[in-house]
Design a protein around this nucleic acid. Sequence first.
DNA 1: GCGATCTGGTCTATGATCGAGACCGCCGAC
DNA 2: GTCGGCGGTCTCGATCATAGACCAGATCGC
Lengths: 120, 120
Amino acid sequence: MLDELMPADASGQPCAIRDVLDWIGDQWSLLVLATLAPGVKRFSQLEREIGDVSKQMLSKTLRRLEQDGFVAREVHAEVPPRVEYRLTPLGMSFLEPMRGLIRWAEANQAAIAAARRVAT
Amino acid sequence: MLDELMPADASGQPCAIRDVLDWIGDQWSLLVLATLAPGVKRFSQLEREIGDVSKQMLSKTLRRLEQDGFVAREVHAEVPPRVEYRLTPLGMSFLEPMRGLIRWAEANQAAIAAARRVAT
DNA sequence: GCGATCTGGTCTATGATCGAGACCGCCGAC
DNA sequence: GTCGGCGGTCTCGATCATAGACCAGATCGC
């Protein structure tokens, strides 16, 4: 598993780690996914909840997540316009392993903060 | 867990997801960690195995991972110089949840590739 | 002796990327 | 009429990554 990380090794398969990093390895995707976890949200709601994301990056991130099938976008033709984003089943299934990562992060936050302080 | 993602919410705690993203959310950290998983490696060995990382980014990434306590750096005063990198226990423990993510990636690679193709 | 080579990096020039904030059309409230 | 909310897009600098040249120190072939 871990040995399959060449850009594209002899077997020609594109390497899962690299793919997952391509999909969600940027600054915001994970945050958006996590913010969307509790349920349907609107654009400005995401903007507010995440707090320090620019509209541009939020828009871009959402479009990419939509393209990759992690979130679904639903436009309601009202005034003012209402656009809702929700996790697809794929997006939800992705949250599963993510939870493991977050749990780890919570458990080891202190250890890393300590390591960082000690570092010369 | 997932609802704790504000930049720094009322409770003042720095939000685990954001932290984990700060630590390993960049393009190369995860790849380096995974490459280092099988055991001790030298700088140029990492460079070769990862393949498309620049020396600069590899150097920078390694220094950050070292600072954060994920990898240990050992310099042998020989000629030519030899520098070895290895995972610390913290780094190894991090690989645990990562494996879940990689498994997910492998299982869902096809689904995402499909979603991407369908995307208008 | 004399250059080539190996190592683990750093430095520099150049291009990609990102964030802040202005701007947009639409409409209802004031 | 003009102010605001909505869901974005556009433009402008600042930041960031990438490729590739360069470095010291020692050893190797010749």
